[in-house]
Amino acid sequence: MKRGPSAEIFRGIGALGIVALRTARAIPRLDFREVLRSAAAFGSDALTLSLVVGAFVGFILVLFSNLVVVRFGVRSLFGWASGYAVLRELGPLITSLVMCGRIGARNAAELGAMKIGGQLEGLVGVGVDPFAFLVAPRVLASAFAVTALGILSSLTAIISSIGFGQLISGIEPSTFMMSFSARVHPADLAAALVKLSVFGAAISLVSTRTGLAAQGGARAIGSAAARAVVESAAALTCLDWAITFLTVQVLP
């Protein structure tokens, strides 16, 4: 049956809710070795990528702000601008968008391959709950992995903006650190942590749902992975606004 787009959206949200609830119910019976194994796999796979992304973000930030910094002559504020922009917005958002691809698509492709290969039914057949054994550990692990990698890449971004700031805008590291330490607060780091952990959970839940919904042959795994990326990117931009709205009030 061909359904309209709004019916698809409601179905998607419903399926997401079911995945989230079953995952939450499976947490007490979790296989912790599997959590550690998948966290290590997700994390080590994407470690270099997150450092590279961080370095790029720092560099791009310097190029962005060079315009304003030079025109208005506010070199003394650059450390604050960089710390604030990286921790509150660019670090979490850009890292998570790339992780949608690295972790989300991979998760969906692996679960989709298991679904299509009949391995999930096999697990049920031998009396193992796939949610406790397979799904919940992955959801937790990728949420942890995205948070940890996001913090690493934000730190890399700040370090790279110190380096490139000196190179391009001629801002001394000591000037950078002065406004950085005076104006960047623990609340900014807390906001980054909140954003990253919510983004990580969203990426893992959405990609798990699309992976489990895969049906058909080789093409279906590709499209499950592609849908995981797209849907989690959409969820990220939407959540980003909601979290920013809240954190600006709660963690000023």
């Binding site: 990528l49 968008l97 691809g101 698509a105 492709a109 989709g112 391959a113 590709g222 992975a225 592609a226």
Partner: peptide, 18 residues
Amino acid sequence: GPGGVGDATTRGVVDSCL
């Protein structure tokens, strides 16, 4: 097989973002 499509998609997204 099918797994290759998933891997390729993952790499494709990451590479285009990079």
